[in-house]
Nucleic acid binder design. Structure first.
Lengths: 184, 184
DNA sequence: CCTTAAGTCGAGGGTAGTCCTCAGGTTAGC
DNA sequence: GCTAACCTGAGGACTACCCTCGACTTAAGG
């Protein structure tokens, strides 16, 4: 059953996973498997030997991304300063998006089950920052989701420009006097 | 040369243009021409009779969109209040994007020649609002471009949500005390 | 070495989507 | 009615994926 793979097989398998990571980052979730095989320096048949169904290879990678994202959220919750934790989460998420198109697609999928893991953590980040008086009281987790999606579009259109947009828009999240609530 | 079209031909031509407008709005610039013909209730051959090259039909519509956009910018420049003019331009651009995918693609194309017409007008909107003290001094036309791109991503992911994001982010554009410049 | 099971290769069959053409049927307008 | 203008839609030509499979190659144990 789990007899160890032959050495060349092991090497190819690893190369395929690494290649898939790169290709998904560049081309998104819909990237053709042939591009993955090519990048790994391996024939397409070899890819199918290791991952008989399309999902096998890609789902693994997506779960990897989601759990990395959740890890980032957890670390951000532990930051000494609530606002800094929130900013770190947002900024690093945006940075990941700028470098990984598949991850961006994940972030922008509004109603993905796997997101729920992150959703809870984001809610806590919001709550914590609001209690500290660092975040506007009328924003909710959905606003942070919008924020991250929005920045990723800038990153796509102008890879060097998203940080500027990010810093500018961050100001909208701070409390200020005489501020009207965003609404229902 | 320009002998008038036969009546049925005229009708079909008009139907094709109207159909193309709808289909481009829904499916973007890359929409297949067969979808246009189908929507117009006309065979594909008829489409090619009227618009022998792909560009013929689509370029016309894109120019139409750009000039509508420029018109919006010009009207916004004439608003009594500089800030209101700016907001109107931004909001209506975002609304157009939310309802027209091809237009969104246009707005997000950073370096399109046709955009230059709008670029100049946006620069004037920025300048006018800053002179009135209604817009942060450290934002430039590029920030408005980013802003519009960003909102369109939210509109795609959650069609009902972009106005909320819009209102929230608008706050980042207002001047406030003790504000650090966005940077170089 | 030799054997052989495990692994690799890549041509190619299958599907899908799009472009565009053209031979034959239809119709507006005189 | 005639005829030029027009319409139709099947289908050829691409392109881009999917995935399979029979022939070849190689790791690893004896």
């Amino acid at each position: 059953m789990d007899r160890p793979l032959r050495r060349d097989a092991r090497r190819n398998r690893d190369a395929l996973v690494a290649a898939a990571r790169e290709v998904l980052a560049e081309r998104g979730i819909e990237a053709p498997l042939e591009a993955v095989a090519k990048r790994a320096g391996v024939a397409i048949g070899t890819l199918y030997r290791h991952f008989p169904e399309r999902g096998d290879l890609i789902d693994t990678l997506l779960e990897e991304k989601v759990s990395a994202w959740a890890g980032l959220a957890r670390r951000s919750l532990e930051a000494g300063d609530a606002w800094e934790g929130l900013v770190r989460f947002l900024e690093e998420t945006c940075d990941l998006q700028a470098r990984d198109r598949a991850f961006t697609e994940l972030v922008c999928l509004s109603h993905l089950d796997e997101r729920s893991e992150v959703n809870g953590l984001v809610a806590r980040l919001v709550d914590r920052a609001q209690r500290a008086g660092a975040l506007r009281g009328d924003v909710g987790p959905i606003d942070l989701a919008y924020f991250m999606m929005a920045v990723s579009r800038v990153a796509e259109a102008d890879p060097g420009g998203w940080r500027r947009h990010f810093r500018l828009m961050l100001d909208a999240l701070r409390p200020r006097p005489h501020q009207e609530p965003v609404g229902a």
